[in-house]
Nucleic acid binder design. Structure first.
Lengths: 223, 223
DNA sequence: CCTACCGATCGGTAGG
DNA sequence: CCTACCGATCGGTAGG
């Protein structure tokens, strides 16, 4: 007769949960997604348990299944979010005017800032895409959109004599993207260096690195 | 009485295993490590199962425990290997002579080549260090050695007027390392571009990116 | 009938 | 190295 014992437990007084009672559905769902992002970030998707996610929200593990069908639904939602925000950012930045270098500066800067300000989500995105089934993975992989943007700008810069012709556009775009994406590997929210300075260093090295002598004239001078 | 059923299975005739019988211990151990590297690379450490590793070697899951005490021993051995090979590489390259740029070129080139030629091991190293307990992780993290080498070279280059003074040495070293390490994210063993070309692109952009006007004179001309 | 969960336990599999 | 298992915990689901 374990029920009596259990009933004692379920009636436990003065636990921390009473505050969390009766949240509206959408708000609870956002709390769950946030907790999932944190746990996936800290442990990785496979090692993360629904138990820990539920603990952080203050509900029971089983209750999560009111919102999802399987564990991977959580990952799916998070990655979709990052994907959509990323695509929106590209759209926004590609409308900018100015030189090729101005555009590259703006695109990389917003990308870097997004990554640093959404570190957990971005890390999960870059680390756990492979945990998704191939179809979802392909549709959420935004590498192509980014790369195509860069690719076009690099070719334009080469045509204008601003970017070294000996660089292969595809390989260069790939290298650039990999570079920015590597930020999540070492950036930590409260480092000695602010986000601006990181972006400045990154963009300085990148733009000078690909610029011809003619192109260098458009960039800040050395000292 | 499930035992009889099990015995029938274990006595199965004409399975593929007979070829694998009675390998000397050290050789088997290397086979296990190799299989572990592959499975960790494909699935990630947490999602990898000892069953799959055993299957690839052609032994039973339980038999792996003749060689290890826990699953993490496999990870530990693999990461130690990568760590030691990396440290040895640094030692070798730091004895080189030439300009600061020559040394940076040699260091990055050997690092890039190692990463591309040991893709599975390197990926596991960069992805799964966090799965180790903090003490082992710290002792196997070779980031510091690498960064200190780069740091010294960058400062030397700045003192000689070859590298931009406005770049923060630590942040630049960190950025450079992150860049090379990001290679594993997209490099695949049989790509369109050979390893040499990748290294060339990478080093061109990096060295031109940090060089002063005076420094640029030491690098291959643009075109 | 619904929303928003809880208490308890399922089948299956992990490392050991 | 194999056979024969265990302790525990996983993701997921039942009824209320």
């Amino acid at each position: 007769m374990p029920k009596t014992t259990k009933k004692m437990e379920s009636g436990r007084p003065s636990d921390g949960r009473s505050v969390n009672d009766r949240k509206p559905k959408e708000k609870r769902w956002q709390e769950i997604l946030k907790a999932a992002a944190e746990v996936f970030y800290e442990k990785g998707y496979d090692a993360a348990t629904l138990q820990e996610i539920a603990d952080r929200v203050g509900i029971l593990k089983g209750s999560i299944y009111y919102y999802i069908k399987t564990k991977s639904d959580l990952l799916d939602h998070l990655l979709t979010e990052v994907h959509n925000e990323g695509v929106a950012m590209i759209r926004k930045r590609s409308e900018l005017t100015g030189t090729v270098f101005d555009k590259l500066d703006a695109m990389f800067r917003s990308h870097i800032e997004y990554m640093c300000r959404n570190q957990a989500k971005t890390t999960v995105y870059l680390h756990e895409l492979k945990a998704l089934d191939p179809k979802r993975r392909e549709s959420l992989f935004r590498g192509h959109e980014f790369r195509d943007e860069f690719l076009a700008l690099i070719k334009k810069g080469q045509a204008e004599g601003l970017i070294l012709e000996r660089l292969d556009p595809k390989l260069t775009a790939q290298t650039m993207m990999g570079w920015t994406n590597s930020l999540y590997q070492w950036y930590r929210p409260q480092p000695r260096k602010p986000v601006d300075q990181i972006a400045d260093h990154f963009i300085t090295i990148m733009l000078r690195g690909i610029a011809t002598e003619k192109g260098l004239a458009l960039l800040p001078t050395d000292r």
